[in-house]
Design a protein around this nucleic acid. Structure first.
Length: 461
DNA sequence: AAACCGGGCCAC
DNA sequence: AAACGTGGCCCGGTTT
């Protein structure tokens, strides 16, 4: 059955009702830990700030800005480092708010190249301040009787994805181990329960394949979806697949494969890969190919195009990109083209889940929205089913959150096996039966902890 | 003082 | 021709 706009409306309504219950349930917070940690971090920030103020770079900063000196100002730091001292690396850009005033770009990537203790300490200090303000502070502000109740929105994103606010429970640190620990330790299950996270494996890649049906992609998905990142890493860095280090595979996954899926291109991917690659990977590539230079990677300007120079990494990535879309994932590329052409002709496009997007969209938007939206709708469908079942069975276990392709549960010990079995059944069996456009196998990853979100580990079903 | 905006950074 | 998609939120800086 093809999903209709009526189906989409029903999903939105039932989804809103289910998410209202998620909001009401709320997530338990270890308030003691939270407030203790906020105090500790504040003390660390104070110490670090005092050290920064003793540095001779800060004297220079102070001399220049006087009363206006603000130690948290990136604009001022950039001016001092790259303007006054004249360190290399800073790029002046146009100022904000239509003013012509130039300022130096001063993000972490640029600052990481400055070999000064002052700058390393400044970055550390800012990260701690940000963690305390955005995440721990954000939770603390919203805690009520030991629970936070983030607002679940289904009507804000152009993609028909969800968003969450007060606080945003979808962007708590995960990748940086230290930051993740600081924040996620505060998220705990109710007394005697287990905090569970159910994750849709490869939700977006799989949903994309349901649109374009690219045979190579389908093959990867049916055998081992992760293999494509390995293959691309091997191709780009001229290694045997078995020799590709995990970190390299992850770099290629993020900075090439997914970037390309979202619509990036070699002019952006090549510098990103080059800058993040370990020296030994680049040395290996140099031995194999003679490539020792990134290349200019100059973006088109005033109608002028700058061809990559053969022998550079830019050129190398351009060639691989051509192979990526012209051979490896040709079916995906052709789908993008015809999908966009159809949209331009009609002025709208429909998702596999029945949602219609009408309006002005760029090519990247028009090909990404339907994938992102429908991928989330799979999770939403499962969340609604699980919620209904929990109510029907008078279970005490609760759904407490959702992050696009995962849901967080707060399960009682006695219900845990049944809940997990049901969730697996809903996603892997009931969902593909309900939506026959799903032509790929669905699988889930389940983790949990009796302590807190950070301590989560795989759970056996 | 409030409103607004850009830059930056967190997640998927 | 176009060129990384979607959000929330913090801070600093500027305008109202």
């Amino acid at each position: 059955m093809i999903a209709t706009r009526r189906d989409a409306n029903d999903l939105l309504l039932r989804g809103s009702i289910a998410l209202a219950r998620v909001e009401a349930a709320g997530i338990k917070i270890d308030v003691d830990y939270l407030e203790r940690t906020r105090t500790e971090i504040a003390a660390q920030v104070k110490t670090l700030t005092a050290e920064l103020r003793n540095d001779k770079i800060f004297s220079r900063w102070r001399k220049r800005y006087g009363e206006k000196t603000k130690i948290g100002s990136r604009e001022q730091l950039g001016q001092v480092l790259f303007g006054d001292i004249g360190l290399p690396g800073g790029v002046p850009t146009a100022g904000s708010r239509g003013t012509k005033k130039e300022r130096y770009q001063c993000d972490e990537e640029i600052l990481a190249q400055v070999d000064l203790q002052f700058v390393r300490d400044w970055l550390k200090c800012e990260e701690l301040k940000r963690t305390n303000a955005t995440f721990l502070g954000g939770i603390s502000r919203e805690v009520c009787n030991g629970f936070m109740h983030p607002i679940q929105n289904l009507h804000l994103a152009r993609t028909y994805r969800p968003s969450v606010d007060h606080p945003n429970g979808q962007n708590f640190p995960a990748r940086d181990e230290a930051m993740a620990k600081l924040v996620r330790t505060a998220i705990i299950p109710r007394r005697g329960r287990i905090f569970v996270e159910v994750d849709f494996k490869g939700a977006e890649v799989g949903t994309g394949a349901c649109y374009h049906k690219d045979p190579v992609m389908l093959d990867y998905i049916k055998t081992d979806a992760g293999k494509m990142h390995l293959d691309m890493a091997a191709q780009i860095f001229k290694m045997r697949v078995e020799k590709v280090p995990k970190a390299l595979r992850n770099l290629v996954k993020g900075s090439f494969v997914f970037a390309e899926f979202y619509g990036s291109w070699y002019k952006n991917c090549a510098p990103s890969l080059w800058k993040q690659a370990e020296p030994e990977w680049l040395a290996h590539l140099a031995r194999k190919t003679g490539i020792t230079e990134l290349g200019e990677c100059k973006l088109p300007r005033d109608g002028e195009f700058f061809d990559p120079v053969p022998g550079t990494f830019e050129h190398h990535v351009a060639v691989i990109e051509k192979d990526f879309w012209g051979r490896r994932f040709r079916g995906y590329a052709e789908w993008k083209k015809s999908w966009y052409a159809d949209y331009v002709k009609r002025g709208y496009f429909d998702m596999l889940t029945g949602f219609r997007c009408a309006g002005v969209f760029s090519k990247n938007e028009a090909v990404n929205y339907p994938i992102q939206g429908a991928a989330f709708h799979c999770l939403l469908w499962a969340l609604i089913e699980l919620n209904d079942w929990l109510i029907r069975k008078k279970m005490r276990s609760l759904i407490v959150g959702q992050i696009h392709d995962s849901m967080q549960l707060d399960c009682t010990e006695d219900e845990l096996p049944d809940v997990l079995a049901r969730v697996v059944w809903i996603i892997t069996k009931a969902l593909p039966r309900a939506w026959d456009w799903i032509i790929i196998p669905l699988s889930v990853e389940i983790e949990g902890s009796r302590k807190n979100w950070f301590e989560k580990a795989p759970l056996a079903v």
